[in-house]
Amino acid sequence: MSTRDKILQAVKNNKPALIPLQEIPALLDVTEENPIVKFTAILKNLSTEVKEVDGWDEVIQYVSELKQQYKIVTVIDGVDGIVNDGADTINQSAAALASLDYALIKGPIGIAENGAIWLNDKNLPNRLLPFICQHLVLVIEAKDIVSNMHQAYRKIQVNEEGYGVFISGPSKTADIEQSLVIGAHGPLSLRVYIVH
């Protein structure tokens, strides 16, 4: 018998008999009255700079300012005035990506209850991108912010997308004496644009 079959057999032989499960009330799925306010407040608490803007002008302006000084990659589609150059990262080595100063990425879902933004393979030409850059800027459209994770999971189809991640804040650690340090292995800072 293969190891696989041996383990599965051991599981089959030893697993508990089926008994009806206790009914437990579902957790509340409360829709926020104002998800954007909540989203912003939570993110600010997570050491994130939040900018709420009307239209894309400010974002476009920001991108062009960054471009003059830094090495940046922008993964934002369908906005006049912003060039999506994410495809350039496809064949770049990780070592090359590590020298990237800024990555700007648009996410499809934001979650008010914990300030998380979902990214998946569709928005990520390169899976390393949001982790390897020095500073990360995430962009989300106001209409894409849902109240909670329950609502988010209803929108997500990871098995079609291959890989996905919820990002809430810049990387951080508290491994030394529980003192919070922003900027561990991932980006040193996070800025979020909420676009109306």
Binding site: L46, N114, A116, F131, G162, Y163, V165
Partner: peptide, 9 residues
């Protein structure tokens, strides 16, 4: 919430 919650399939 932790900063990165990844799903790898």
């Amino acid at each position: 919430v932790t900063v990165y919650n990844s799903i790898v399939t």
